[in-house]
Amino acid sequence: MSDSMWQGSGVDLDAYLRRVGYEGDVAADLSTLRRLHTAHVDAIPFDNLDALLGRTAVPLDLANVQEKLVQQGRGGWCLEQVVLMAAVLDRIGFTFTAFAGRTRVRTGSKFGPALHVALLVELDGERWLHDVSFGAFGPHEPIRFAQNARLDSDFSFDLVQEPTGEHVLRFLRPEGPAELYGFTTDVRYPSDFELLNHFCLTHPRSPFNHRVILQRTQAKVRHLLAGTVLTEIRPGEPATFRELDEAEVLSAPEEIFGITLAPDDIQTLRKTLAGP
Rank of each mutant, 00 (worst) to 15 (best):
F208T: 12
G93L: 03
E166W: 11
H37L: 08
T103Y: 08
I266S: 08
E126A: 10
A118F: 12
G101I: 04
A63H: 13
G258P: 04
A274I: 00
L17A: 06
L36V: 07
L52D: 10
G54E: 08
L36C: 08
L230S: 10
L214F: 07
L224G: 03
S2D: 02
H210N: 14
T228E: 12
I256Q: 03
D29W: 03
G10R: 11
L53Y: 02
V168T: 11
D152T: 07
P204H: 07
F137E: 08
R102I: 05
R234G: 00
V41C: 05
T184I: 04
F157A: 04
E166V: 14
A51M: 15
V221H: 12
K110S: 12
D265L: 05
L169I: 09
E255N: 10
D131Q: 02
A146R: 11
E179D: 15
V88Y: 00
R222G: 05
R104V: 13
R216Q: 11
F99N: 00
R74P: 01
T164Y: 01
A39T: 13
A178E: 15
V82G: 02
E141G: 11
Y16V: 15
H223K: 03
E232H: 03
F155I: 03
N64A: 14
P177H: 11
A100C: 09
R188E: 10
A239Q: 11
T240S: 15
E122L: 07
L123K: 09
D25R: 10
W77K: 01
M1Q: 12
D192F: 09
P177L: 05
F257N: 05
D124L: 07
L17H: 06
Q218S: 04
E243I: 12
L17G: 05
P207E: 04
L196W: 01
V221W: 00
T38N: 07
M5G: 05
T217W: 00
Y22P: 08
D264F: 01
A15F: 11
T268R: 15
E254L: 12
N209Q: 12
F137V: 00
V229W: 04
G21D: 06
T95I: 10
G10Y: 07
G75Y: 02
V83G: 03
K68V: 05
V82I: 13
C200A: 15
T164V: 13
G101E: 05
V26I: 13
A219F: 06
G176A: 09
T97G: 14
A136F: 13
